[in-house]
Design a protein around this nucleic acid. Structure first.
Lengths: 179, 179
DNA sequence: TCGGTCATGTAATGGGTTACATGATTGA
DNA sequence: TCAATCATGTAACCCATTACATGACCGA
């Protein structure tokens, strides 16, 4: 059910095509949600059937035509209704890296260390990407209310830093074991 | 595919029933994975059909009978094979609280602050629960290799602390806006 | 000519949740 | 008497991923 509200939320700011929405999901929304384009197109169809969004076809030359979606009054109502609900306790994480870590007693420490170093490097790269995205985004949206983006990006960056610190801690534990 | 390896991993230490496995998922495994009992029972059936686990029925008085599952050699092989694979980049988070935060421009700041305070309190309670679980668990498993549990619990606790700190930061931002 | 961007989708499969079902024992 | 613990499962549904499909333009 959450994907539909993510879509309605993005549409509450501006008209967007399915393609645009998919772009958003691979950029600012990516810090806390993800969705494939296939899922987005299907959900948009449902939202349209339920009267929560409308679309109009825009013809373009040199490019495929597109469908621009906009929120209806009923869509806005539903979105605000959802926002007013008391949320259920958050889902537990499903983190495959941690799942592997939980089985580190089965592999030699050198392999565990190599694995953790790779994971650390990966998360550092993601952190860097977030910083760059943030600089570009906030420069471009200087005059708008970007509190949501500020806060979610900030959390994403804190998460990455926490991960990197934890990797160092874990590597340290395995290093001291090797001796 | 990951659930099956979580099950094989737990069975690599000891024989367990489906019920036992479900218990594990609501305790130590819960910091990084979750699974309903319905899913566990179904997956165990599949694993048995594929010859990765065996079970034998244990009759009990005063309690329902149970099926104890143990890893086969092929099961261990598959588990080690999976551990040796290079993992794909981790999935993005899906965090409903952050999804709501991303739409905070649609609600009044007082509501946002109340929401964040509740979330903070919730995560503090979870953190406390983790600390207590850790103390009990490590006291009980003093003589075993608990590096996996140590590291995954440590990450879980770091995550909770990061969340709490971020809540304070976010509340601060809204407080300064109210003026 | 190859990969990337723009733009839309269907179909099959896989994974996860919820509802339903049973039934004995134990402690509040 | 009511809820919790122990113990197992089926069925329906919902949500998400992967594979497949099309097709034009643009820059390296």
């Amino acid at each position: 059910m959450a994907l539909r509200y993510a879509l309605l939320g993005l549409l509450s700011r501006e008209e967007l095509s399915g393609y645009d929405l998919a772009q958003r999901f691979s950029q600012q929304v990516s810090h806390f949600w993800e969705a494939h384009h296939t899922q987005i197109y299907r959900e948009l169809q449902k939202l349209e059937e339920e009267g929560l969004v409308n679309f109009h076809r825009v013809e373009q030359q040199d490019r495929p035509d597109k469908k621009m979606y906009e929120l209806t009054d009923r869509g806005m109502e539903q979105l605000l209704g959802w926002l007013a609900e008391t949320p259920k306790p958050p889902k537990k994480m499903k983190h495959e890296v941690l799942l592997r870590v939980s089985m580190f007693h089965l592999i030699p420490p050198e392999r565990a260390i190599a694995f953790l170093q790779e994971s650390k490097a990966y998360h550092l790269r993601v952190l860097e990407g977030m910083e760059m995205w943030g600089q570009a985004y906030f420069a471009e949206h200087k005059d708008e209310d970007t509190i949501g983006e500020t806060l979610t990006l900030d959390f994403g960056m804190r998460f990455m830093k926490t991960w990197v610190e934890w990797c160092d801690f874990a590597i340290g534990m395995f290093e001291s074991r090797k001796k």
